[in-house]
Design a binder for these strands. Structure first.
Lengths: 364, 364
DNA sequence: TTGAAAGCGATACCAG
DNA sequence: CTGGTATCGCTTTCAA
């Protein structure tokens, strides 16, 4: 429990000066410090279990190698934690550490979180949300390099770059998957329109019909909510007391929990999945989609990839800002702050086919 | 994007020395600095939007006001995030910030995480796990005040204190709940014995029978796993093709996902919940238990409370260590390092009654 | 009442 | 090749 060894301790033990210690331990010893001294220094460092005090380093280098992450409720809720995991993995690879502040959906805490993080001299800032949504970027967030993950700058000029999933394409590919199994009467249970995720997935669903030259039956799109019970009751509305020939043959859901409700309702009505009706989830929620009975076909959100992509891009900006301008600055065209990259990076979702989708029943 | 203002900037603007700024801004101005100067200093600070550089503070005070949290997979998985949320809330109240490192279940990364955190000069360390389990405490973790949440020191001497849920009592109260509804033939679907959570819950289940003066039917305890499909197949084994009078009337599950599987199986068999059979979950998983059809009766894990309790205790130790010994040290009895507290703090679970449990069917 | 100076731990420059 | 010294931003003595 005794205090850690400092460079001075090492120097004393090795009988040299602090500077020598610094040089040797940073690989700049050769040609500067006598080999014999180097040896002694290394031994002393090992003996004392020396490692430099990162706080002192931060002060001196004016960079903390800390990335601040503000989350709206990623920590508290069971969702989207993999965005942070992906981001953190990349940060760690680069010798950065992340500190996460969760506002638990209290928007008034945004600025405070950013302020706290800035006081801690973070080198960069990331904002992560549960579910795709527009973000009112907190003040001062742009004082250091910043990026958004799973949300996007709500200002028309979109100052802060963002990494988001390609929900439109996800919705479309989900629909195309069941179409490829022969389904034509396909319902969509779709969360709500409070966040852009559901509307975008619906847009993809519509575009699948358009591309297939099929009409879209708007009555098949139900914005019911996001939870199990919503899926259950939505399905009851779609199927209960409806003659078989007029039932949809497939139900697409805006997330996996809705799909649980759908299957629950099907079983209650004595229907089999996927023999009588095909069901698809969305998200590929850990320990849910794969473990369902039947295992859910779903559209996996690329959470880890999003986090990793966001952090990669952020660290590039951090480097760029800290390195004094070199080389290419004389390029014609001038100032471009973000080197021509679009402000929004789209990451594709991934179709996962399991057991809840099957061929359309004969005669439909 | 320009660098933040320093105390020197404030001093210059106010026409005083750095020391005066420091004094005033830390409330020690009265009696040391002229009121007029104080006013000017405060104005200057506000004008420059000054706030002290925490890194410099940390270096000077030899304390970072950072608590390091090592998690085995709390960040990555959808579970138990509320432990961290609870811990973080308490930390924030006390002006601390937490930095979380997730090892993603790779035990070999434990020591590295602790090392990294220690290099960052954290004032304290917490280890958080998904699901109760014994922990092989990483080396060096005891170089600063430390605590475990949802896990416990696997060494017989139990050096590091821990905060864990009272699983035995939880299991017992779950069983007592359905007993109070008249059930006597109660099955338990129980995860596995790889972690102590399921065995302890089973132990509670048994003790409920003992206290009620009823025999325990060991054939009713099935260690099937933790996921939806395990619940489904376990239930099938219990109910499918079994004559009604020989079926259990209630099924207790070691978590809420198992309960989903149970209900799924019941529906498939044409059984109603809770009319034909009562089902109970465990955990009160967010967006699952409450949203199920029917809404699940369950035993809520006190995650937030555990995190908060662990952090409260940890910060007390941090304070104690940093404050030089004052007053009471002369108390008789001497050294006691942990002021007599037991190393393991148990937090009770909370019974949540919803719609999946009901009176035992007539005649059973 | 105020300002000057010392140190927290590490690095990098620059004389020696 | 080496060791002294300034610096990062802040607090806290200590003299004036």
């Amino acid at each position: 429990m005794n205090r850690k060894a400092t460079a001075l301790d090492v120097a004393k033990l090795a009988g040299v000066s602090r500077s020598a210690v610094s040089l040797v331990l940073n690989g700049r010893g050769d040609g500067n410090v006598a080999l014999e001294s180097q040896q002694r220094i290394r031994e002393a460092a090992a003996a004392l279990n020396y490692s430099p005090n990162k706080i002192a380093l931060s002060l001196r280098n004016r960079q903390s190698r800390i990335i601040g992450i503000v989350s709206d409720q990623v920590v508290t809720s069971p969702f989207d934690g993999n965005i942070i995991a992906g981001a953190d993995a990349v940060a760690r690879e680069h010798g950065f550490v992340t500190v996460v502040m969760d506002t638990e959906l209290d928007g008034s805490r945004d600025e405070g979180a950013v302020e706290t993080l800035l006081d801690r001299q973070v080198d960069g800032l990331m904002y992560v949300t549960v579910g795709l949504r527009p973000l009112h970027v907190p003040a001062n967030m742009d004082r250091v390099p910043a990026i958004l993950a799973n949300c996007f700058d709500d200002r028309p000029e979109a100052v802060v770059p963002a990494v988001i999933p390609d929900e439109v394409r996800g919705g479309r590919e989900a629909a195309e998957h069941v179409m490829s199994l022969g389904h034509r009467d396909i319902a969509f249970l779709a969360g709500d329109s409070l966040t852009p995720a559901a509307p975008r997935r619906i847009e993809g669903y519509r575009s699948a019909f358009l591309h297939a030259g099929l009409p879209v039956n708007e009555a098949r799109v139900l914005q019911v909510g996001w939870d199990i019970d919503a899926g259950f009751h939505g399905t009851m509305k779609l199927l209960d007391g409806v003659e078989p020939a007029r039932r949809p043959t497939a139900i697409l859901c805006a997330n996996d929990r809705l799909a649980i409700g759908v299957v629950l309702a099907c079983y209650r009505l004595g229907l089999s999945v996927p023999q009588d009706i095909s069901v698809m989830g969305y998200d590929d929620e850990f320990r849910i989609a794969k473990a369902m009975v039947p295992a859910l076909s779903t559209m996996a959100l690329p959470l880890r990839e999003m986090g990793a992509a966001a952090m990669t891009s952020l660290l590039r900006d951090v480097d760029r800002q800290q390195a004094p301008d070199d080389g290419g600055t004389a390029a014609p065209g001038g100032k471009e702050p973000r080197s021509g990259t679009s402000a929004e990076t789209m990451v594709p979702c991934r179709l996962v086919v399991r057991d809840s989708t099957g061929q359309v029943p004969a005669g439909r």
